[in-house]
Amino acid sequence: MMAIRELKVCLLGDTGVGKSSIVCRFVQDHFDHNISPTIGASFMTKTVPCGNELHKFLIWDTAGQERFHSLAPMYYRGSAAAVIVYDITKQDSFNTLKKWVKELKEHGPENIVMAIAGNKCDLSDIREVPMKDAKEYAESIGAVVVETSAKCAINIEELFQGISRQIPPLDHHENGNNGTIRLGNQTPQTIRRCC
């Protein structure tokens, strides 16, 4: 029997970049009707297999408006991972992302896995943030990066698989599930268990 690990994942990013859409897509595609749904989309859970473990993501959405910024520490405390979302059609949202990364580095949990999601990649014809910028930035901070489209269900699973892989298994066995997916950095990091 596989052990279930609960991993708190915090969603950060400007309002309107599609944070909750990404999660809704992730949780509701292949929806398992045996698992009771949560009461709303701000908090969702999904369990995925990873190596010989099961990762249960407890996904905490945050409000992206500036006025709620100061509440963020409550949401990202104790997180094993943070998904920071920007909108590839809005340069501003990418700048906000950098602020979040900085805040996480300064005040976030040690060893938090950071994953950058450039959402709305289906709208690449009005793109403002080049993919190259995002990749370079992600590499510089050792983060997972992937361009997603919640609308078209592109790379959503991959985003969370990328996070899963960066969570070191509890025992020291090899994860046995390495790289087939287009992701940036895969530097293994040591993660504190979230609870």
Binding site: L11, S21, V23, G40, A41, A63
Partner: peptide
């Protein structure tokens, strides 16, 4: 579906 952007306010 509403995420935290809408729910918290």
């Amino acid at each position: 579906m509403y995420g935290a952007d809408d729910f918290l306010p």
